[in-house]
């Protein structure tokens, strides 16, 4: 079986009018199915850029990226959209829920773009299942702006889960949350990983990263270390993250 993710000598350069920024400068690694990987590094290290390329939101300038054995550079815009829709889920630091929209509608969003044949009943079942996984069924008809930060992030996770993807990217998911809510989010991510989903967590906080099984350190666009987490943290509800 092919690796889930295979990255070979990946580069990303941003070119503005005068300044050339080398965000990622030759990165190679592999990620197996079922892993929980934290990509760590200080801000500006290029870790978010790396995640965006892995999440097919951006194209590398140089190097190769294989997702489930498929070369990302061979994929069309529509192919990547379909992969993001079905195989990948995203959780962002700032939640990115749609305003003036209910919890249900936010979680429904990826289903609106599902190219496979689905019906309303199946969709409702999927949405309920995803909300159950984040323990938010009771908030289903609330508007997103009526929720607390932790609840918003859980809705965002439910949205990422609704199409049952293999791979979930979480970009600083606890960055805007208090420590208690942060723990809750990490617990959900660990549960999902236990159920077999591959989680890639991007963070600059050591404590958050320690919830992963493996930590890749990125400094100045290069990998400075890549090892199994020593003394891994297991999140328990009620505990504070720090």
């Amino acid at each position: 079986m092919s690796k889930l993710i295979q990255v070979i000598n990946l580069h990303k350069t941003y070119q503005t009018d005068e300044v050339k920024t080398l965000a990622i400068r030759g990165v190679s690694f592999e990620i197996e199915r079922g892993e929980f990987v934290a990509i760590m590094g200080p801000s500006g290290s290029g870790k978010s850029t790396l995640m965006q390329m892995l999440g097919l939101l951006d194209q590398p300038t140089k190097g190769e990226y294989f997702l489930t054995g498929r070369n990302a550079s061979d994929l069309s815009d529509d192919d990547t959209a379909n992969l993001r829709n079905v195989n990948i889920g995203f959780v962002f630091q700032s939640f990115n829920l749609l305003s003036k929209t209910t919890v249900y509608e936010n979680v429904e969003l990826p289903l609106l773009y599902d190219h496979r044949k689905t019906n309303a009943q199946e969709n409702r079942a999927k949405i309920l299942k995803a909300l159950k996984a984040v323990d938010l069924e009771h908030r289903i008809d609330h508007f997103s702006n009526q929720l607390s930060g932790g609840e918003k992030q859980r809705v965002a996770i439910a949205r990422a889960l609704v199409n049952d993807p293999d791979l979930i990217f979480a970009d600083e998911p606890t960055g805007n949350l208090d420590s208690k809510s942060g723990t809750q989010i990490m617990k959900i991510l660990q549960n999902l990983n236990n159920e077999g989903k591959t989680i890639i967590l991007v963070t600059h906080e050591t404590q958050t990263a320690k919830h992963a099984k493996r930590i890749i350190y990125v400094v100045d666009g290069k990998i400075s270390s890549d090892k199994t987490t020593g003394s891994r943290l297991i999140a328990k509800n009620g505990e504070r993250l720090k």
Binding site: G55, L57, D77, D78, A81, N82, R84, N85, V86, F90, N96, L98, L109, P110, L112, Y113, D114, R159, A160, N163
Partner: peptide, 9 residues
């Protein structure tokens, strides 16, 4: 966000 969750152009 829409593009991230799978919306095509």
């Amino acid at each position: 966000v829409r593009r991230a969750v799978g919306a095509k152009r």
